[in-house]
Structure formats: C-alpha cells, structure tokens
Amino acid sequence: MAQAAAAGHATIFEDWGSDVTTFKGVPWGKAMMWIFLLSDTFIFSCFLISYMTVRITAAEPWPNASEVFSLTMFGAPVPLLLIAIMTFDLITSSGTMALAVNYGYRRDKKKAIRFICATAFFGAVFVGMQAFEWTKLISEGVKPWGNEWGAEQFGACFFMITGFHGMHVSAGVIYLLIVAWRLHKGVYDKTNYEIVEIVGLYWHFVDLVWVFIFAFFYLW
C-alpha cells in the first residue's frame, strides 16, 4: 500500500487538517478498536506501575519468581518452564491470527475462519495452562493475602495481573468464536472483512500485554 508511512510526515498535517475523516482508510470499527486498545494500555500500565511501586517499597523480601514458577522435569527443577510454554503458545496464536487477517483481506473466507478457530484454540489452551498454574500455586501456599516466602504483595500482584490478562484472553476467545460464526453465516459478506483485522488487533494486543507481564513479573 502506497498510503503507508513512506508517504512522509507531511501527511500528518494533511490528515488532521482534512474534512470527513482524520484516519484515512480506517473503518469506524477499526478506529474504535485502536482507541479502545489505547485506553486498555493505560489500564494494564497502571496495574504494572502499581506492581512496581509495591514491589520497590516492600521491606520484606520479594519471592524469586524463577524459583516459585519452576516445574520439576526429569528430577530437576526447570525455572519458568510452564510460563515459557504459555509464551510460545500465545505467540503461536498471534501467528495464526496474523494469517487469518491476511486471508480475510484476500477474501478467502474458509481459510480465515479456520485460522480464527485455531487462534481461539490456542487462546483456550493458554487459559487452561493458566488455570493449572493458579491451582498449583494456590496449593503451594501462595495466596493473594500472603505467602511463605516474603512480601505478601507478590501473590496479590500475581493473581491480579495475570487474572486481568486471563480475563482478556477468555473474552478474546469468545470474541473470536463469535466473529468466526458470523463470518461463516455470511454476515460480513458485503464488507471488506475488516472485522477480522479488528478482532486481530485485539488479539495481538493481548499477546503484547503478555510480553510486558513476562518481562516485568516473571523475569524481574
């Protein structure tokens, strides 16, 4: 697309100075999703900043995430194993989503639906692994109001941040399935299938958030 960034910074003033639409070629739904994601960025950032604050101010030792989140494999603890698998799972789902968007714009409805469903599947797997992780941690004694290893905010932040992210993933899975179903029924046949890109934006955002959670919660 020649309308791309290559067109230069001068387009900023043209676009913002024009009538009818400011974001040229961006459908209403896509504009709305972008703005929503911007707002959601503020929500997740505020969660992460709160986590940073209570962690730095904590006078009790902060439990070591890489030990807490280790799985025993072949008799030896492997740090963050499950988290790594979850990360790869989410990236996989992002890839399938990107393909779905691509096929959507090629008007290859069947393939688009197939890849959306694959994305939803990987998302559901992610939620399942998260449920497993929560169960394991709770049974090991990590509760939102305390744990055995140190600052009680560790558990509180963990459950809150991953829980909020997990809710986004779950909502995303439902959203994906609804879109796939409506696509199948032909609801969007008169449009350009931009709905696939819109749901894709949401899904990639969920993956994006995980990148930050992984770095700041599990690796710090």
Binding site: D19, V20, M32, I35
Partner: peptide, 13 residues
C-alpha cells in the same frame, strides 16, 4: 470515533 471519522463534507477539525 464520530468526531475523527464521521464529519460531514467541509467540516475540518
């Protein structure tokens, strides 16, 4: 979205 994407002809910001 309405303000940015749904103005009428000639209605610049």
């Amino acid at each position: 979205t309405t303000i940015l994407q749904a103005r009428t002809r000639g209605m610049t910001l």
